[in-house]
Amino acid sequence: MNNPYIPYPVEIEKIEVENESRDIRTFRFAFANPADRAAFDFTAGQFAELSVLGAGESPVGIASSPLDRDYVEFTVKRYASGVVTTALHNLQPGDRMGIRGPMGNGYPVERLAGRNAVVISGGFAVTTLRALIRYLLHPDIRPTVGDITVIYGARSPGELCYKNEFLDWSKRSDIEVHLTVDKGDPSWKGRVGFVPAAVAEIAPSARNALCFICGPPVMLKYTVPELTRLDFAPEDTFLSFEMRMKCGIGKCGRCNIGPHYVCVDGPVFSLAETRDMPLEY
C-alpha cells in the first residue's frame, strides 16, 4: 500500500492563457515516470490534487481526455487569496511539480452508449466537460454515442475558455455547438444572452439523452428548471460540485454535502441525488 499523500512528479510542458483577464490558464503536464501516466487512469469528470511543494495542493478537475495518452491538462483560475493557484500561475514550462489522483467518480460515460449527450456549461466551470467532449469526439468513441449538443456561455467573448477549440468544433458536423456570451463586443457575431435562455431557445431534446451541466450556482439555479421543462429526467441529468478539499480521499472530513463526501462520492451527482442533499454548497 502506498502513501496516498505523495504526489506523482510531473513537468509542465505547456501553459495556455485562456481568457482576457489572464487569471485562467491551462497547464499541460507530462509525467516524469511514464508508468505513473499509466497508473493515472481516469474518467472525464474526475479531478486531481495539483501539488506545489512549499505552497500546497489544490483540487482541480482534469480538463484533458482520458484518451489524450501522452499528457494531462488542468485549467486553473487564480484567486487573490489562493496560495496554490497563485504559485501555479507563477510557474513556467519546464518546471517540476506534482499531481495526486485521479480522484472522485467522474461522469457516467458508460451510460452514453447509443445515447445522445447534451452538455451545458458556463464560464470557467467548463473544464471537466471539455474533457468529456474531447473524449466523446475521439474516433474510437464517437461512433458509439448518438448526437452531441453543447451549449456553452461566458460573461464576454474574451472569457470563453478553450475558445479556438470550441470554434473548431462548431465547424464540425458530428457535434452541435452553441456559444453564447452575456455581453458581446464588436467582434462577436454569435449569440448574446444567458445560458438558461439559450437552453430554453435551443431546446435540446431529452429523448434518449443524458445531460451534463456544470457552471456557477446562479446558472444552475435557472438552467435546471429549463431542463425539467424539456423533460430531462433527474436521473439522467448530471452536475459536478466544487467544495473546499484537502485530502481528496475521504479522510479529512471537510467536503461533505450531507452524508456525501464530494471527493469520493462525487464530484458528479445526478440531479435526482442532489434533490436529497441538504442545501449546503
Binding site: P4, Y5, G250, K251, G253
Partner: peptide
C-alpha cells in the same frame, strides 16, 4: 474512517 476505500490511509494504518 482511515481504512475506508477507495484509498485507505497507509500512514494511519
Amino acid at each position: 474512517v482511515f481504512a475506508s476505500d477507495p484509498s485507505p490511509d497507509r500512514l494511519y494504518l
